[in-house]
Simulated assay, not measured.
Amino acid sequence: MVKQERALRTREALIRSAATVFDRDGFSVASLSAISSLAGVSNGALHFHFANKATLADSVEDAAAQRLDQLITDHEGTAGNSLQLLVNVSHDLARCLHRDVVLRAGFELSRHQARTGGRDLHRHWHQWVEAALKRADGEGVLNAVSPEAVAVSVVAATTGFEVLGTQDPQWLSHRTVTRFWQLLLPRLAAAAALADVTPAGSRTAPHPPAAAPHLPAAAPRIPDQRGGTTL
C-alpha cells in the first residue's frame, strides 16, 4: 500500500510538473529531463510511469478534463436558470485558467497542431456550452436566438480570453468576463428573464479547486516566459 501511494504521488507530481513545463516552454520545446527535474525524480522514474512525452501530455489533458468536469459539476444546481449557470461557470473557468496550471496546459495542448488523438478540451467545453444554452431555451430564458449560434460566440470569446490570458492575465479577470456578459445578455436573454441573470455571476466560485493530493508541499518556482513565475 505504501509503495502504491508513493507511485501515485510520483505520477501526480510528474503530471503537474509536465503541465508547468508545457505551459512555460510549449509542448514541442518541453524536455522530459526538465519535467523529471522539476518533479524531483529521475528520468528512469518518469519513464516507468510514462513511455514518452506524448503519453505524458495525454495524462495532463486527462487531468485537465477532470478539473473542467468538476468545475461544472460544482456549479450544477446553484443557479436559478441555465443561462445564469453558464455565466457562473464561465467566470469560474476564467479564474481557474489563471491559477491552475494543469487546466491551462490542458487547453493549450488541445490547440497544439503537432498533437493528434488527445482530448479536445475546447470541443468538450463547446458541447457543454451548447447543451446549457439549449436547456436555457427550453426554460424560456433565451430570446429568439439559436442556441447553436450563440454557443459558437460564447466559446469563441471564452477560449479567446484563455489564449490572450497567457500574455495578460487581465483577459481572464472577473471584470473582463463580466463586461462580456453585460454586452451579450441584453441580446441573448428574454426580456422577462434579463433581470434574473447577473453578468458578474451569482456564484462564481463555489469551491476553490482542490489541490492535487500527494504533490510535494512546495514545488519550486520557475521563471516563465510571461515575466512571472509558475508554481
Rank of each mutant, 00 (worst) to 15 (best):
R99L: 14
G106F: 03
G80D: 14
S59W: 08
R119W: 01
Q127F: 07
G117Y: 15
R115P: 05
A79H: 02
L68P: 09
T73H: 14
A79K: 00
L142Q: 08
H47V: 11
F161K: 02
L68A: 13
I72G: 03
G140F: 11
V89Y: 04
E139R: 09
L71S: 04
A94Y: 04
Q84L: 11
R111C: 06
H49A: 03
T73R: 15
D137N: 10
S110H: 02
A136N: 11
H124R: 13
H126Q: 13
C96R: 15
H49L: 02
G138P: 09
H49P: 00
L109M: 09
A151D: 08
G118C: 10
T158V: 05
E139T: 03
A51I: 00
L83N: 06
A64W: 00
T73F: 12
D137S: 10
V141Q: 00
A132K: 11
G140S: 06
W125N: 04
A54I: 13
E148Q: 12
E76Q: 15
H47A: 08
T55E: 15
D92T: 10
A57N: 00
H49S: 03
S153P: 03
G140P: 00
V145K: 08
R115F: 11
Q84H: 04
L83S: 02
D137W: 00
A114E: 15
R95L: 14
R95D: 14
G138N: 12
G160L: 05
Q113Y: 11
D100P: 01
R95C: 06
A136V: 07
L109K: 02
Q70C: 09
R99F: 10
W128M: 04
G160H: 02
L142V: 08
H75P: 00
L93H: 13
H49M: 07
A132C: 14
V150H: 05
W125I: 08
A105C: 05
N52D: 06
P147T: 08
S110L: 04
G140N: 06
V101K: 10
R99I: 15
L109I: 04
